[in-house]
Design a binder for these strands. Sequence first.
RNA 1: GCGUCCGUAGCUCAAUGGAUAGAGCAUCGGUCUUCGGAACCGAGGGUUGCAGGUUCGAGUCCUGCCGGGCGCGCCA
Length: 655
Amino acid sequence: MNLLAEIRQCFAPALESLGVQPADYLGMIRPAQDKKFGDYQVNFAMGLAKALGKAPREIAGSLVETTNLSGLCSQVEIAGPGFINLRIDDEFLRTALTTAVSDDRLGVAASSNPLTIVIDYSSPNVAKPMHVGHIRSTVIGDALARIARFVGHHVISDNHLGDWGTQFGMIIYGYKHFRDQAAYRANPVQHLGDLYRRVRQLGDYHSACSKAPQLAQQIEQLKVQFAQMKSAPEPEDKGERKQKAKEIQRLEKKLDELNEELAALRQKISAIENVAELKQLADEHARINQSVLEETAKLHAGDADNLAMWREFLPSCMDDINSIYKRLDVGFDQVLGESFYHDQLQAVVDDLKNKGMAEVSDGAMCVFLDNFETPMLIQKSDGAFLYATTDLATIKYRVETWSPDIVLYVVDHRQQEHFDKLFAVAARWGYATQDFRHVSFGTVLGEDGRPFKTRSGDTVGLAGLLDEAERKAKGVLIAMQKDSSELVDEAEIERIAQIVGIGALKFADLSQHRSSDYTFSYDKMLELKGFTATYAQYLYARVQGIYRRDNIDPASFRTQPKPFLFEHPLERELGIMILQVSETLDEVLVDYRPNLLAQYLFELTQTFFKFYDQCPVLTADSEKLKASRLQLCDLAARTIRLGLGLLGIGVVDKM
RNA sequence: GCGUCCGUAGCUCAAUGGAUAGAGCAUCGGUCUUCGGAACCGAGGGUUGCAGGUUCGAGUCCUGCCGGGCGCGCCA
């Protein structure tokens, strides 16, 4: 039962009779912001008043008169400037709750308009270790896929792996020059990772060596400029003085930035030069960066040796990634990486060329677009393709293969301009009816508040983060068990710690608005109280505890529901909140915002614990009341299980 | 420089243009021989960066400024 949808439906005829498009206004019916106003509020009378030239309260009155809410709402009030406050009829609530108790879907109807939705998420670079920067796309994308699927859409989740890029050139180079056959045999995943890091380190060293002097020179120039600016006489004009101060500030900041960059380069240099063996290696591989690109080019050109190595390495790299997915309980319907599209790229370029959309500029094949200063490059001057080319080929493939209505790209916001261009090209190319959407999210920042740099070497590995989450949850669990009667064995603690720890981690991410930057903090990500998954999981465990205590089999009332009673205001409040899961899921999909579901689950849990504090369940005054309250507990717990499950988070019977 | 996103309580964050801007954490105080204290109740804490504008109504929309993140042709 979707209460909000029911109410909206009721108001449509009245709006139509006023001569306006109901769709423009029905969205303004919302859950009441403050419970004292009722359950739902209608906010469009004020807006309509202007358009129709009547007093808002008068409009509200006529809307109420011509709208049939009987059976649905027991109380309709016009308040303030023209709000219409609605209170759902208790009997209607009881019926809806009774239906929910006996329904596996808790009364949530499947969408009457199922769409085909492709969701592209996670998409890590194979062969590079996954780090915390990958968690957002993975966790948000997975949650959206689960939610959309539950709501009734046909979802195709697709992991667009970076499995065809320079990183394989690096591994191939490393394998050819640095491999330790025994170590490789013993643990291919780890050894390939080592080879990657070694090549990376040497390559970075050489880049740093060539960049550092230029950078140092640039800094010297800036310093001179800065000194001149500072010693120049103060302008008399106030505006110019301000301008000057600003310019000085800007230069200072720029200097700081460059100095920091230089320090990072020098660190990379000294890391090599301080170790004689490394220095020797670096000297022996002076052309390493060019060679890596050559190995990559050979792979792309179909070189038999490199292709064979790629085929050999890929499964090992995937093992690493899949173990993370397994721990996160994340899956995909399709895993079509960049390599899958490799042989379709030339055709894409040719097609765009033939259609007059692409032209050569400065040696590179470009698609120029209105409203964009820079073109989209689809082929480099050396003939190599770019990720834009792959993205276009991917669009073509997805549309031709799955005919999606919507294609979501769960990718961080730094790529916004890329997607703006990509979608613009796609539309001109003939894919204009699909709703391509960049579901962007904020950058993962370090605890110092600065963006997490992929190249900064000391990133937190994702595997280590998961370990830490589970370790901390286990510590809390063991501490809790000391004075609890509900003892559980060692293996059980391990299992529970996993679900609680990973759940906390995921929830920390999903509970935040996806567009805001994500400040990485162990404390925050592993928090186990307050606005967390743990709090909601605790609700579930407590309800299971009630069943255990009184040997209750919930199946008994799920098949034969008893009447719901509202003797305490919190029983009714909890009942409404339970039913609102349906409208919450719809809300999530309007703008692809899982945090709305997280917020809902938290509020539901808060309401439950208030209810539970004030309404005795097992010791209720009558059997009828006990039965009713047990059903509320059951519904609350099942709603939490469903909602957390849709966020990719599990529940446990004891914790 | 151009583009784009952001600025809300001490901290971390909420709030499709709606009524008195809300949570969590932290702090302080209460509930307690408990239906498993990972709980419940209460208190303090705000000129929503600044200044204008639009409107019946602005944290939200528009303009300008201040401060910050990110991006800006052959990386992905």
